[in-house]
Nucleic acid binder design. Sequence first.
DNA 1: TGTCGTCTCCGTATTACTACGTAAATGCAT
DNA 2: ATGCATTTACGTAGTAATACGGAGACGACA
Lengths: 221, 221
Amino acid sequence: MHESSPENTTIRILLVDDHPLVLEGISARLESEPGIQVIGQASNGQEALALAAEMNPDVVLMDISMPVMNGLEAAEHFHNDQPDVRVLILSMHENREYIVKMIQSGAAGYVLKDVSSDELLRAIQTVYQGGTYFSAGASEALFSEFGHSDQPDKADTGLTKREETVLKLIAEGQVNKEIARTLNISVRTVETHRQNIKQKLNIQTAAGLTKYALEHNLISL
Amino acid sequence: MHESSPENTTIRILLVDDHPLVLEGISARLESEPGIQVIGQASNGQEALALAAEMNPDVVLMDISMPVMNGLEAAEHFHNDQPDVRVLILSMHENREYIVKMIQSGAAGYVLKDVSSDELLRAIQTVYQGGTYFSAGASEALFSEFGHSDQPDKADTGLTKREETVLKLIAEGQVNKEIARTLNISVRTVETHRQNIKQKLNIQTAAGLTKYALEHNLISL
DNA sequence: TGTCGTCTCCGTATTACTACGTAAATGCAT
DNA sequence: ATGCATTTACGTAGTAATACGGAGACGACA
């Protein structure tokens, strides 16, 4: 990882935002902090990637919505091409989808644009040290989903219990004959269930059924 | 939320750990910090809940494994009964299951016991302000599960490029005829690919192929 | 140059699945 | 007890997929 005593080291930051005003504002706030150095600015993801390759920043502080290449794509590229760079997203969107996507794209943190400079500083230090930071709104949005919404909530499929059972077995890759043996019913019955399921879900292929089952948390990988 | 300038406010902390030594050590380290005040100590979850009800701490810094009532249960109780209290878990376990469970129980953060006091301080401030904090090891463990973690790591499948392409289409639910049209090849060719794929992967059904494709991140839901 | 792997295509026979339909037994609710 | 959904099962016909097989074109690499 990085240094063991980060407060003694200067964290080199690349700022990425398509609004010059925002860029300047944040830059000014950060520059006044000891231990923080803004080594570059970019106005879109493409620029950011190029600049980062040159300057090798510790942390990229980046907006999501940008022209040319948005923060999402950029984060992915960073993650693949320059994995040492920690990407901290600075966004106005409190949208769960966004946040989850960002994390999946390899971002190390997500702070909302209404945070105090104090909190922003802390976020930067956190991600710099390898941690993960979500500001209040972000973490609420995030964990209300997978966190403590108790169950992986099996959505209502409109299927009967038996049909769900059959669907699971299909999704797991069993053929009708195996399913019949498993459930101690005839192959014909399995076929009937299979038909009904496909009809109800409007899905044509076995592969599609598996995908459906996974999407709806009937089975897991 | 709380104060807007937290560095001017004293964060009142309740320490919970069943090892007196750990309790003292952390207490000493934290007390030397301005802005932090350890207002109480408890040696198990039950004590912690009782003490917290009296003293109304801002942050509960708590171990997981404890006698009488462990951190998990305690966190749940805090979440339900004293939701204003921010629970920060201090654990030696880097186990994903643990971390996920803690979050589901309403913990606001999870730091490993090997963190620096500097990082611990930052974690405390973060959760105090309503954020979520995971130290490096914790966030790695956490997000390797539900997100993406490091790479979507398209594992080596032993399949050729063409076969992977076909597999993707199969997994998406296309039938051979559609795949043939999509790729501008004959149905027979698709069949051949399909056979080779199944043979290589030792999978019998289309559903199984879909599952495989998902497991190996060839497609996503 | 020659071999190897890949991609392409086809034939034949068999098996699995689909699309329709029918219908009996069961359990649950009104 | 009657009605309704569910689960079970079968018939027939057709389509899709599989299990074998062979084979030509092409590029990479030795």
